[in-house]
Design a binder for these strands. Sequence first.
DNA 1: CTGTTAGCGCCTTCAG
DNA 2: CTGAAGGCGCTAACAG
Lengths: 389, 389
Amino acid sequence: MARPTGIIDTNHYRVTGKQVVTLKDVAARCGVHFVTVSRALRGDTRNVSQEEIARISAIAAEMGYDPSRQQAARRLALSKRDETLLNHVIGVFFPPNFMAASYFSTLFQGIMEVLEWEGFGLLMTHTYSPRLPSRPPGSSAPPDTCLIPPAYARGDVDGMIALANPRLFEHTLARLQQTVPIENFPSVFLLTGILPGCANVLIDNQQGAYLAAVHLLDLGHRDILFLRYPEGDYTSDQRLKGYTQAYQERGINPQLHLHPVVLQSKETMPDIMEAFPTAMRNHPETTAVLAYNDRHAIYLNYYFSNNGLRVPEDISIVGFDDSDSWVNAQGEKMLTTVHVPSLEIGRIAAQEVIRMVQERMVTRQTTILPTHLVVRASTAPPRLRTSML
Amino acid sequence: MARPTGIIDTNHYRVTGKQVVTLKDVAARCGVHFVTVSRALRGDTRNVSQEEIARISAIAAEMGYDPSRQQAARRLALSKRDETLLNHVIGVFFPPNFMAASYFSTLFQGIMEVLEWEGFGLLMTHTYSPRLPSRPPGSSAPPDTCLIPPAYARGDVDGMIALANPRLFEHTLARLQQTVPIENFPSVFLLTGILPGCANVLIDNQQGAYLAAVHLLDLGHRDILFLRYPEGDYTSDQRLKGYTQAYQERGINPQLHLHPVVLQSKETMPDIMEAFPTAMRNHPETTAVLAYNDRHAIYLNYYFSNNGLRVPEDISIVGFDDSDSWVNAQGEKMLTTVHVPSLEIGRIAAQEVIRMVQERMVTRQTTILPTHLVVRASTAPPRLRTSML
DNA sequence: CTGTTAGCGCCTTCAG
DNA sequence: CTGAAGGCGCTAACAG
C-alpha cells in the first residue's frame, strides 16, 4: 500500500483461463461483420433488422458472449466521447465499528437489500480508521479521513451512500469529487446532519424528541435530564427543540425543569459515568432521563441499578432508536424508546442513489422520515422521593 | 436488473468533468516520447535512466497523472498477452442478516480492518437472499444461491472470502469459477465446514466443545443436553466428538448421560421452544445444557426463567462464540461460554487472500484456530432436584 | 537508451 | 441496411 502518486503498479499476472468470447467470434459464427454484431447486441434497430438482432442475440447468448467481460474495451472506446458506463456498484461509507451498533447494521441491511434487488454491488469503506497506515507524503487529509479505494479513481463506482459526521466527511467528499470523473457524483447522506450538495435522508429528531418528552410530561414528570453532545451537534440541537416544544405547550418552563447532560466523547460508558453523577447531584429532583440513544439508556440503567435506584419505579428512562435491546429475564423488551425506521432509511437511500445513477441526474432533496414512540416498561409515573442517591 | 444474457447495456452517460491526464500529456511537458513516460512510470530501469525516471515521475505526480484512471486502457493492452492487473478489491460473501449476529459482524470487522490497512476495497455480496428478483430464464441456480455482481465478470475483483454453508455455496462457487477469468481464483472459506479447493479458516470446534464439557463435568454435572443441528452439520459433528471425548476421559458413558436436542431450522427462538420441552421431559435428570451458540444460550435462559428454573442454581448453561451478551442489571456479562477468536479469523482470512492475490499463487491450506473457555456466572455445581419443570 | 509500430476489443463516423 | 476505417490510452516488440 501507500504507493507514491503517479507510479504504475506493474503487478500483473497471467490469466490461465479459457478464451473469452469477443464480438468477432460471434460475427464469425453469424457470417456477418463484427460491427453488425455490436449494433445488434446494442439493439440498434435503425441499422439492423429485428430478425437479425434476434438471430445474432441468440447466437451470442449461446456462445456465452458476456459484454461485461469486455468493459475495458467498451470504456476505452466510449472515453473518446467523454462517455462512461454503469458499473452497478455503489460505494458505502460507514463508521468503522458500525456493525457493533445494531442501529447501523439495520441501516446497512436496508441498503444492501435494495442494492442486491436492483443488481448493484456494494463497495464498503470506513469513514475513518484508527489503524490506517501512514499517509502518502503529500496528503493533506486529516487523520480522521478515510483513504478512498482506487476503484473510485478507476471509475468503477457509480454513486455513494455515506453515514458520517458532515464536518468530518467534508474532506473525504472533496477528495472524492476530485477523484471521481463526474462533477456531480450521485450521493446520499444519512442521518447525522445535512450535507449541502448531497441528497440527505434524515429522521425527524425534533418530532421524535417531542413525542418522548410529551410521554414523560403526561406521566407527571417535570424535572428531566437529557443526554446530548455539545452545541453544534445536529441531532442534539434538533432534539432540544422538540423537548422544549413539549414543555412550552404544557406551560412548564424548560429553563427550570429540563437540564442537559453534555457528553464529550463517543466513549459512551465512561463518559456517562463521568458526567452523570454531577448532573444528578445538581438536580436531585430529577425523575426521568431522555437518553441520546438506546445504548446510553442501557448504560444509564446499569448506573442506576448500581446506585440503588429502580427503573421505572424510582426513575424513568426513554431511549432513542429502538435498536439495542434491553430485555428482562423473560426476554421481553423493556425500554421505552423512540422508534427510528432504520431499515426504511437504508432502503430509501439506496433507491435514491440508484435512481440518480440510472437517470444520470443528481438530485439534492432532503427526505425526513417520521418516528414514533414505543412505550414499554422503563417509564412510569414519578414517585415522591426524599433524596437522590 | 435481470437483463437477458449477451445484451449490451447502452446506458452510458456523458462525463462532465475536466480532462483526464494521459501519458501523452505528461510526455509533452517532459519533452519526451510518451512511451518513455510509460517506461519511466513503470520503473523500467533497463530502458530509462534513474534520473529520467525521477524527473518524469515528479512531473507526472505534479500534473496529477493517475494510472488507475486509465486502467481500462492498461487492461486492454495487457489482455493481448493474457495478463490482467490487480484491482485491489476483494469480494466478501456473507449471509444476508450477518450484522444482526454480533459474531458475524466481528468477523467482518476483522476482514475489513486488514483490507483497509492493505489498501483493498471490499465488495459485499449476500450468499443468498429471500428477496431476490426472478432469475434469468436459463438459470439453473437453486433459489438459495446468490447472484454474482457483474463486477466479477468484468474482472474487477481479485479474490474472495466466503462465510456460508459449503453445500449451499458450491453452486455459487461453481458459477464464480466460470465467470472469473482465472482458473484458480484466490478464495478463503470461513468456519462452516471445509470446502475443498479453497483455503479454509476454521476454529477447533472439537477442542472448544471438549473444554465446555470438561468444565461442566468437573463441576459435578453428569446429565447434560446439547443443542445441535442434524447429522452432517460440520460444526455439530465436530463438537459432538469433543463432548464425547470429555465424557470418556472421565469414565462417564455419554450414551447414558449426554443427550442431543436436534434443531431443525435456523429460526432459533421457535425452534428451541419446540424442541426443548420434549427433551427436558425425556431427560428430567438434566442439570446443564451445552448451547450451539450464545444466542441459543440466551433463549434457553428465557425459557428456563419462564418455567421457574433459575440459572445457574437449578440448571447451568454454556454458550459458544462469546459474542452476543447476556448481562445482568449491573451490566456484567453472565454467560459461561467458549470464546471464538472472530476478529482474528477475519484478519487471518483477509491476510491470506491478499497474500494469494499479491503472490498470484492460490494455496489451499486449512487454518484451525484454538478456542478457550470463559467461565462466568451461568454455570455452577448441580443441585439435587426432585423434578424438572 | 529512445522512438516507432502494431495491436487489445469496442464504438462511431463515413462510405457503399 | 452493411462494411471499412480511425481512434480510445496503453504496452510490448522491434528498429534505430
